[in-house]
Write a protein that binds this DNA or RNA. Structure first.
Lengths: 115, 115
DNA sequence: AGTCGTACTACGACAGACGTAGCAACGACA
DNA sequence: TGTCGTTGCTACGTCTGTCGTAGTACGACT
């Protein structure tokens, strides 16, 4: 399992990634993070929903309600905004920079030059 | 400049890396982080010294005093312990895992296969 | 005398992640 | 009919690491 300290600040990025193509909602995003990461990262509900609130306040996402076809239960869907896309791009660039920096301080155990 | 949210939890790892070969002290470590990162990451003094305190409490480092040759001013040196080396190794492994996971959610803009 | 570089310490604020808990609607199973 | 599991979400408080601000102290240089 993954330490939440390194993910910290990147949960928003991960969520935005999952909204790039189509709107989605909490439960679905949670399951997709779980499966895409190969069960290695499981986002907590509270973390997820507080990220939604924060990002909506920041204008990175917009929410709307939709009914399920099967039942009358409502879901809150989130749609990424242009500002959200811009933020996502910035974070991707930042990630690449940060990765380079951190790796200067990380020992490479696996000395096989596998490409 | 690098967001401290992603570094969070890895400052300890970075500091331990700089102690692997020889003991060192705050000011020197701070300057080495700065230069090794190519001025891209500058650790704050408060962050650094609170990391020392935390890690000493956790048994990852040990402190001792030494005088400077030039003057009578004391420095607090830190030496990595076996537990510290073990922790550093764990964090390196964790980093590699985390990196893989995060990259599943990061767009690769630069499509040039530059080695 | 003043500023810069070195080498720290103290204290409080802040933000993001987390633990715990609860609510509500639905289907399945007994 | 009852309750269990899944879905879908909210509330509230706690913890931890980082950061802002500030202050101390000494030597060297100007």
């Amino acid at each position: 399992m993954i330490s939440s300290d390194i993910i910290r600040g990147y949960n928003d990025t991960i969520i935005l990634y999952l909204l790039l193509d189509a709107p989605s909602y909490g439960y679905e995003i949670s399951k997709r993070i779980r499966s895409i990461s190969g069960e290695k990262y499981i986002i907590k509900e509270t973390t997820l929903y507080s990220a939604f609130t924060r990002m909506e306040k920041n204008g990175f996402i917009e929410s709307f309600y939709a009914e399920k076809e099967e039942g009358g239960k409502r879901r809150t869907y989130y749609r990424i905004t242009d500002a959200g896309r811009a933020y996502y791009s910035e974070k991707c660039e930042e990630w690449n920079l940060t990765k380079e920096v951190i790796e200067k301080f990380i020992a490479k155990e696996t000395a096989n030059g596998n490409a």
